[in-house]
Design a protein around this nucleic acid. Structure first.
Lengths: 338, 338
DNA sequence: CTCGACTATTGCAACGTCGCAATCAACGTC
DNA sequence: GACGTTGATTGCGACGTTGCAATAGTCGAG
């Protein structure tokens, strides 16, 4: 079915070792021999057997990407960038979805399938920092979006507190005072949501104001559906927000949808700011103001960390804490038209 | 660093073969021995080496998923479903993005990395059917969205012609006559777009009408951006559509955006129908009418095909042509509010 | 008490590749 | 013409696992 070095060697009348040399180009091979071997390679359509190579080399050339879910736009976009960046480093990406299941996250951090991957990029949701970093691991790990600089693994994330503060300040400066914070997840160990809430409160504090706790609206998931639910709950409770800072664009879009349904004008009755800068937000009606973390850089820096850990000898280098730049992209959902 | 069967065997005082038996559960092992071995396994935190297993078994447990891009919602959602369905079959998915590059598609079909994957699911864009099927391959291949029942590989797709016809008929029945067809890609071998155009024309034919060729608006890519561009081009050219059938939801959302910008009321001035039923469409303002292929079934059937090819002995079974059901989901973008 | 049948365990070999060290041939130099 | 040097090629072994066949040990039936 498929040809091995042995078959090519037999056809070319040389040893397997010589064929291997031709394939890898590692040792000197006479021009005449090389040509003969190459012809045999082509004729048999030889492809090196990855499993055998991996066994020999102790590396697989695969890296794992563990994210909560692929279908949400933010993770979809991020995964796309990571796969592309990995390709440039001759790595192949295997994707795992954890769906925020703590068991799944644990399993992957513990080494999962046993040296299937040379490294792991994981965006933890359900596991608290202590548990994430407490696990001993066989492969280098890079954490996406985890909070505190801790002792055991590289971390790549935006400054969520600062970014959330900027987003909220933007709304405060536009004169909004009853700004809803849509997205806390007190039931999960979701550090990201916690930080964004912190930034929201910090913005009020700096402005010498105090946010109304009734305007903090928790959500179960980060999907549009829950954004819509949360917005409806806010309005039904008579909270009367004049602006909404949603912790993700998806939540914002769900909430925006409800605002439309209820006949509220955006941004005149309610202004909206989201977080993530997903493609949909750009084409929403009106386009969504959002905090844009540099996803391209997240992908590149995460892979850089992994490469350093995999290829450099001792792990003498202490874990890195890479802060990714972000910027506030102001669009029509938060700037009064009149 | 990492323990092997040999280490466990030494610790438990048995042969490597017995440890292997305990791990795989394939042969009978005395209870007392099993317990001792299990203790050793736990103590050393043994993980089987995948590369060695693969080499021995001739299988990798990996399947490849080759799609144009991960960041577009349709492929993101589909990839998520495929990854999840694969997980249930104990397969791991490696993802490749082709970005519609014919070279990349050729490389993958040719066997790519050499037996890295046990099977390949590919959604071809740039390659015409003849080239896709003409390539001899080492691994089973399932094509997503390719057109004609052909000789060489399984195929899983919706009936695009019929679906497009239904979508168009829906608009015709609502009284629209100047229905734009937004999405032909004459410059690519994109069979999908071709079929949807065919369905569009067929609907008119059945209604005894003739569509205005000026309302067929080609696009370069299938992203929102090009949907917006195409809509602007239509309006600027004075084509005056009273409805738009966009070949994908992304195109529809881009076009919808432009309609809003130009002050057109949706659906009263222009109605919209898309294709794919991506999550965004559900929360667009107004929500987008769309053709919903059963993505869950696409994922499952594709994996089923692959499983059959991989596990069944001879490939005596002729290539399957699996048609996936779809339904028209009518939302506010195509139903007059007054 | 012996023999056969069965269970538990083991050693050997091989999957395909590549690092290492050894071999072999060719050529120039003294 | 013998010798050292360089370059080309090769055989051996090991990476960690598991199928196969063989061995050692156990028990019940006749």
């Amino acid at each position: 079915m498929s040809s091995r070095l042995k078959d090519v060697a037999a056809l070319a009348g040389v040893s397997t070792r010589t064929v291997s040399n031709v394939v890898s180009g590692s040792a000197a091979v006479a021009e005449e021999t090389r040509a003969r071997v190459q012809a045999a390679l082509d004729e048999l359509g030889y492809r090196p057997n990855v499993a055998a190579r991996n066994l020999r080399a102790g590396r697989t050339g695969l890296i794992g990407l563990a994210i909560p879910e692929l279908h949400s736009p933010y993770f979809g976009e991020l995964a796309g960038l990571i796969v592309r960046a990995a390709q440039q480093r001759a790595w192949t990406v295997v994707i795992d979805q954890t769906f925020g299941d703590p068991e799944a996250e644990r399993r992957l951090l513990d080494g999962g399938d046993g040296r299937l991957v040379d490294g792991l990029i994981i965006s933890p949701w359900a596991l608290g920092p202590e548990e994430v970093t407490g696990r001993s691991r066989n492969v280098p790990v890079v954490l996406l979006g985890e909070r505190r600089p801790h002792g055991l693994a590289d971390r790549v994330a935006a400054d969520n507190v600062l970014a959330a503060e900027e987003a909220t300040t933007h709304l405060l400066e536009a004169g909004h005072r009853r700004i809803a914070a849509l997205g806390p997840q007190p039931h999960l160990h979701n550090e990201t949501a916690r930080q964004r809430l912190e930034g929201y409160r910090e913005a009020f504090r700096r402005a010498g104001l105090t946010p109304d706790p009734a305007l903090e609206q928790p959500v179960r998931t980060l999907h549009r559906e829950d954004g819509a639910r949360a917005m409806a709950a806010l309005l039904d409770a008579g909270a009367r927000p004049d602006a909404v800072f949603a912790f993700t664009d998806e939540l914002a879009l769900g909430a925006l949808h409800v605002a439309h349904e209820r006949g509220l004008r955006v941004p005149d009755d309610v202004a909206f700011v989201g977080f993530d800068d997903i493609e949909d937000g750009r084409y929403a009606n009106p386009p969504l103001t959002t905090v844009a973390p540099d996803k391209q850089q997240i992908a590149e820096r995460a892979l850089q960390c992994l490469a350093d850990r995999i290829y450099s000898p001792a792990s003498a280098v202490p874990p890195l804490d890479v802060v990714i730049p972000h910027r506030l992209v102001v669009r029509a959902s938060s700037t009064r038209t009149s």
